[in-house]
Nucleic acid binder design. Structure first.
Length: 385
RNA sequence: GGGGGUGCGCCACAGUUGGAGAGGUGGGCUGGACUGUAAAUCCAGUGUUUCGGCUGAGUAGGUUCGAAUCCUACCACCCCCA
């Protein structure tokens, strides 16, 4: 069984479950650090295990295809071996690059032609090609090739785009059924719901996606600039339609508060660049709120951040020796001077916090204390310190 | 001691060789943004102000309708000679 739903908590749609892959299990709800180009930026694989305790990380089809290229990945025996990561992995299909590289791509029925951001060369991604590359990369969970429309988009554009994503999905599912695993482990295809901020389109897309009977389902096209209420409303709406016996993955979300709100609405999996990118820019997430460590007010603050014990070891409640504690004044200095260590320590800090947060959410779901815990946590998480 | 050169905004560089820049670029500094990573990136502000202005090109004078620009003295720094 790919996914086991363990418990749906009282007074909320939040649930706890376990995903089983050939590279091990994932306890949900889970946050997945983004490792676009074969690395979670500024973080070593050892640190993903301790103190971060990541259970699964992401890679990106477009970026890995351009560099190092799938030939080298295949020589290595797949991305797991190439980077030295034996836990589960997920690859995005390149669908997000259809959105983020809008200036350098052309969408057609057949697929999307990208101009490489590295050398300007042209590359055609079709649903089949995206899956082939993902097979060559070898992630445990692979994503359907979709179009992620920008916000705002007209209803007409969003509907046309959604229908294209659905047709591409048919081709992905067909291609996946014909494909054999390359490295001896299974690869599970997740389709992606689209439909923008339009409730009826989202319903239609959810039904279409659910009918494919894939091992898990994803919600795309959110966190692209829409109001947060839209993100929450659409997440809830989708979770009510997507089957309960399969994991639900909300792509590209989000802030700590976003995670708790969307877990509350029935989401099981998240990924986001926010903890790593913002760490490099000096924004630290804590249980007490958000700290912009660049701010002058920390220059003479020689105290530690209030960690509340969340930088735990895998098997104890003690602070992990792998978690480097530094004063706010020192962290500010590192970020100000653009020292590499600043980006590293702050990335480690944020990811450790994100994984702790979803772990706490899971514990509270299992104890049926999630709803009250979430209500207390969210205002704290959104505070600016 | 003699000769030559250069001086403006927190810093550097560029530019201005009689018709007013509170101006350029980069850095620093102070904020802000960042959500399936073209992001260790990007944006804004950075004399003063009662928002109308005011002050400002090393300092002090001078020439001129008008000076950052020309002249004189002084100061500082740089180079060359002794």
């Amino acid at each position: 069984m790919f996914y086991k739903l363990q418990h749906t908590t009282q007074g909320s749609a939040a649930r706890a479950g376990v995903i089983t892959t050939d590279h091990g299990q994932i306890e949900t709800p889970i946050f997945m650090p983004v490792g676009t180009a074969g690395t979670v930026k500024c973080i070593h694989q050892h640190q993903l295990i301790d103190p971060i305790q990541a259970q699964i990380i992401l890679g990106n089809t477009y970026h890995l295809y351009l560099r190092p290229g799938t030939e080298i990945l295949q020589e290595a025996g797949g991305l797991h071996k190439f980077i030295g990561w034996s836990r589960p992995m997920l690859t995005d299909s390149g669908g997000y690059q259809v959105y983020s590289l809008a200036a350098n791509r052309k969408i057609a029925e057949e697929g999307v032609t990208f101009r490489s951001h590295i050398d300007g060369s042209s590359h055609l991604f079709t649903p089949e090609r995206s899956l082939d590359i993902q097979h060559e990369i070898g992630a445990d969970i692979i994503m359907a090739f979709d179009e992620c429309p920008p916000y705002p988009s007209t209803r007409e554009y969003t509907e046309t785009s959604m229908e294209l994503t659905h047709r591409w999905l048919d081709r992905c599912v067909d291609h996946q059924r014909k494909s054999k695993p390359k490295y001896g482990h299974r690869q599970h295809l997740f389709p992606i719901v689209q439909g923008g901020s339009f409730d009826d389109l989202r319903r239609k897309s959810c039904e279409y996606i659910a009918d494919q009977d894939m091992p898990g389902n994803a919600i795309g096209g959110l966190s692209v600039g829409e109001p947060t209420e839209d993100m929450y409303r659409i997440s809830k709406l989708c979770c009510e339609i997507l089957p309960a016996e399969k994991p639900r993955y909300l792509m590209g979300v989000g802030t700590p508060a976003n995670l708790l709100e969307c877990i509350d609405r029935g989401i099981d999996m998240f990924d986001c660049v926010l903890p790593t990118r913002n760490a490099r820019h000096g924004l630290l997430y804590t249980a007490d709120g958000i700290v912009n460590i660049r701010n002058k007010k920390w220059a003479n603050d020689h105290s530690f951040l209030d960690y509340r014990g969340w930088q735990h070891s895998p098997n104890s409640d003690d602070i992990s020796p792998a978690f480097p504690q530094h004063t706010k004044a020192y962290l500010r200095h590192l970020i100000h001077t653009k020292e590499a260590l600043g980006a590293m320590v702050c990335s480690l800090h944020n990811l450790t916090f994100f994984l702790w947060l979803v772990g706490q959410a899971r514990a509270h779901i299992l104890n049926d204390t999630f709803a009250i815990w979430k209500a207390e946590m969210v205002p704290m998480l959104e505070r600016r310190l």
